[in-house]
Structures are given as C-alpha cells and as structure tokens.
C-alpha cells in the first residue's frame, strides 16, 4: 500500500485519441492530486467521457501515457473503480439491485470464484450507504434514473478502490438524489479517496469540487477551482457558447 502514498493519484501525459483519423483528444496533460475531487468540464463533444475511457484503457489511444500512483493501470486495477453513464447498460437485464452491487466484488474475487455471503454483506452495506437498502431485491428495470445511479455508485463502493472515475453521476437525477450522491462522494474524499467526475452543471462546480479540468479536445486549464474556474478559462472552453451561459453564473465564478 506504500504506493498509494504518492501525492499524484493520476498522471496523464501527451494523451491523444482519434476516431477514424479525427482527433477527439489532443495532447492532454493532466495531473490529479491524491484526495482531490475533480470535475471534468467542457461542452458536448469536448471528449470528457473519452478522457475517462482512455484513462481506463477502454478505448485505444493514439499516443501518450497514463499512470495511477506512478503505475500503469494493469498493476492498479484493484485501486481503480469506474462508474459508467447510466445509459451504457441495458437496464432490462434480468437481475436484482443487490446482484448488480455485488458485481463490484468480482474484481477482488478474480476468475471463477463465485460471490458468497461476505460479498453479499458488502453489497448490502454499500446499498445502505446510498440509501437503497429497501430496493435490494428489486428488479433493476423497476428503478428510476436516480435509483439506477445510486445502484451504480453502490457497486463502485463495494470495489473499495482508491480512485473513482465517474461519468456524469448527476445526469438526470432529482435534487434530493444529487444531495445524497454528493454526500457519499464527500465521505469518500474524507477517507482519502481521489475522485474524478465528468460534470455538466457549471452552477455546482464551486460547491462540489476542489479541482477542475476544463476540456475542449485540448486541456484548456486544470487546477484548483479557486484559480482555474475563471470567466476567462470558461470562455476559452465554451468559446462563443459561453456568453449565452454567462447570465446567471457570474457570482459562481471565482
């Protein structure tokens, strides 16, 4: 566990990703401090989800290196958890909430070993943390958007990772769910975990995050919210579209 003492949790260097010869991410350099809760912010098509997925080797990269606490992902899988966008899976899949959450233990179990009582217990504890214990035996198809999201987060909690990468965990959830999710995230941070979250709501950046990565194919800026989340940087990130957003946002920017 000494490895995890490293102050830099994630280091992305010279990352370039292209789909059919069109660059989606171009020469990205990001370094994320241990214990930070970072937002990846940028307009549609900026490559936010792509950045997360390329960090996790889910899509091929054209060039660059990614390391977690100084090591390649291969060595660090047990320390990294991923929460995909809700829409990426088929919620009609025949299974229950507690089953999905138990899947978070599969990595630690390794090949073939089936989950048992211990894993089930971990799953129930995680469900309690996200306030979903009453739904444990529900079919996942019966869940609302916010409940699906909390199920996914519970599954990530079971993984007991050091680094959590989450793709739009607040998308399409109501205010109460958003509050309960942010509480869980803050608790994770209080326990020394590092969180990187693709986020789309500029209004909550200052309240929720310590660090921000402004992305639009290139890294526009990245660092602590109070120095990075500025009008100037947002204008660079959103270009012309930013003026339309600017109205109610002035007081939220540092």
């Amino acid at each position: 566990m000494d490895i995890l003492q490293n102050n830099i949790a994630i280091e992305v260097e010279d990352l370039t990703v292209a789909y059919h010869h069109t660059p989606v991410l171009w020469d990205i350099d990001v370094s994320i401090e241990k214990g930070a809760i970072s937002a990846i912010i940028g307009p549609n098509g900026a490559g936010k989800s792509t950045l997360l997925k390329s960090m996790l080797s889910l899509i091929p990269i054209s060039s660059g290196t990614i390391s977690f606490f100084g090591n390649p992902l291969k060595k660090m899988r047990r320390h990294v958890a991923y929460v995909p966008q809700r829409s990426e899976v088929d919620w009609d899949f025949p299974t229950t909430v507690v089953d999905v959450v138990t899947m978070g233990s599969y990595g630690a179990l390794g090949w073939i070993t089936p989950p048992g009582k211990k894993e089930r217990k971990l799953a129930m504890e995680a469900l309690e943390k996200v306030g979903m214990e009453a739904f444990a035996n529900r079919q996942i198809r019966e869940l609302s958007g916010g409940q699906q999201q909390r199920t996914f987060i519970a599954r990530a909690l079971v993984q007991d990772a050091s680094i959590y990468l989450m793709d739009e965990p607040f998308a399409g959830v109501d205010a109460a769910t958003e509050q309960s999710i942010i509480e869980v995230l803050r608790e994770l941070r209080a326990n020394g975990k590092t969180l990187v979250i693709v986020h789309h709501d500029l209004l909550t950046v200052k309240e929720y995050f310590t660090h921000v990565i402004l992305l639009n194919v290139h890294t526009i800026a990245s660092g602590p919210v109070h120095t990075t989340f500025t009008t100037e940087n947002l204008q660079k990130t959103y270009k012309g579209k930013f003026n339309a957003l600017k109205g109610g946002i002035d007081e939220l920017i540092v």
């Binding site: 997925k53 996790l56 080797s57 889910l58 899988r77 047990r78 990294v80 958890a81 991923y82 995909p84 990426e88 899976v89 088929d90 899949f93 299974t95 999905v100 899947m103 599969y106 990595g107 179990l109 390794g110 090949w111 073939i112 070993t113 089936p114 989950p115 599954r155 993984q159």
Partner: peptide, 22 residues
C-alpha cells in the same frame, strides 16, 4: 457454470467488467 459470474457481469456491463480486470 464456472464462468457464470464473468458471463453475467460482462453481459450486463462489459466496460466495468474490463476495468475490474477481466
């Protein structure tokens, strides 16, 4: 039967299953 867990997880959510090391 042996790989039921792997098939289940990778059918439901292939990406997360990959991230977990399968």
């Amino acid at each position: 039967t042996l790989f039921f867990k792997e098939f289940k997880s990778s059918t439901f959510d292939p990406q997360s299953t990959t991230v977990m090391g399968f």
